[in-house]
Simulated scan of single mutants.
Amino acid sequence: MREIIFDTETTGFDPKSGDRMVEIGCVELVDRRETGNTLHIYFNPERDMPAQAEAVHGLSIQFLSDKPLFADKADEILAFVGDAQLVAHNARFDFSFLNAEMARAGRAGISMDRMICTQDMARKMHPGAKHTLDALCTRYGIDRSHRVKHGALLDAELLMHLYIEMTGGRQIGLGLTGNREVAQPSPSFVTGGDGASQRAYREPRAHAATPAELARHNEFVASLNQAIWLEGA
């Protein structure tokens, strides 16, 4: 299963009022394991940068003035995303900007059916608690000390770790089913995003009891006094 964790930075809150996307960061997961494949692009928004927005992400119009237009990178983004599910925090916000930019570039929008919103997940899992990315990273013990300002790739990487924890932690995909296709890590990745080495896949060993072990077990069961599972037998 392939999923793309992504985040955007923008000039404001509403693409319908002329706000534009200025940065996108994407991180690839396969079977809930980070592959090391990422996409990170800054865009020239072709407009000014409000001071409130610059205070959040630190991206000035001077910095963005020589960056590509979204239309020039739309096909690259679509190729990276492919047909994967897209995971974002407050995903409707990010989808609204992504699809508004796709429309400006003459491309079809990405279906909301592919959206997974970690903020919605958090509201169901932790009702009444704070559901910001910072608050959830604190709850799940994810280090965010290097997050001074918002940044699309940095926030996507933090969200990746959060999403993994919220969906069962790193025990997912350890290969307990004996299905090699599920258990085997993606060939493109050697270490996890946390720097942990990934072990090579090993075929599961058979664990059937031997005849001698079964005989000893039967002797032991017969020696038990009033075993509850024999009641009514």
Rank of each mutant, 00 (worst) to 15 (best):
R2G: 01
I5R: 00
D7L: 02
F13P: 00
D14L: 06
K16R: 11
S17P: 00
G18D: 08
G18V: 10
M21R: 05
E23G: 02
C26T: 06
C26S: 05
L29C: 01
V30E: 08
D31M: 01
R33L: 02
G36I: 02
N37W: 02
H40Q: 12
N44V: 04
E46S: 04
P50I: 03
A51P: 00
Q52W: 04
A53R: 04
A55Q: 09
H57Q: 04
S60H: 05
S60G: 01
I61A: 07
F63A: 04
L64A: 03
L64G: 03
K67C: 06
K67V: 05
P68F: 04
A71Y: 09
D72T: 07
K73M: 12
A74Y: 14
E76D: 12
E76Q: 10
A79S: 09
A79H: 07
A79Q: 12
G82I: 04
D83I: 08
Q85R: 15
V87P: 03
N90P: 05
R92A: 15
F93M: 08
F93Q: 04
D94I: 13
F95V: 10
F97C: 09
F97A: 08
L98V: 15
A100V: 14
A100Q: 11
M102G: 08
M102H: 15
A103W: 14
R104N: 15
G106K: 14
G106S: 12
M112V: 14
D113L: 13
R114W: 01
M115A: 12
M115R: 10
C117G: 07
Q119Y: 12
Q119F: 10
M121L: 14
K124E: 12
K124P: 01
P127D: 11
H131M: 01
T132L: 05
A135V: 02
A135W: 08
C137I: 10
R139I: 07
I142Q: 00
R144Y: 13
S145A: 13
H146N: 10
V148Q: 10
K149E: 11
K149M: 12
A152L: 01
A152K: 02
A152W: 00
L154H: 11
L154Y: 13
E157L: 14
L158S: 03
L158H: 10
L159V: 08
L159T: 07
L159E: 02
M160S: 14
H161R: 14
L162V: 08
Y163C: 02
T167E: 07
Q171L: 09
I172M: 08
G173C: 01
G175A: 03
R180E: 15
R180H: 10
A183V: 07
Q184V: 13
P187W: 04
S188W: 10
F189W: 11
V190P: 00
G195P: 09
G195H: 06
G195M: 11
G195A: 09
G195V: 13
S197C: 10
Y201C: 03
R202P: 00
R202E: 10
R202A: 08
R205D: 15
H207G: 05
A209T: 13
E213L: 12
E213A: 15
L214H: 13
L214N: 09
A215N: 10
R216A: 11
H217A: 13
E219I: 12
F220S: 10
F220P: 05
V221Y: 15
V221L: 15
V221M: 15
L224C: 11
Q226G: 03
W229Y: 14
L230Y: 06
L230I: 03
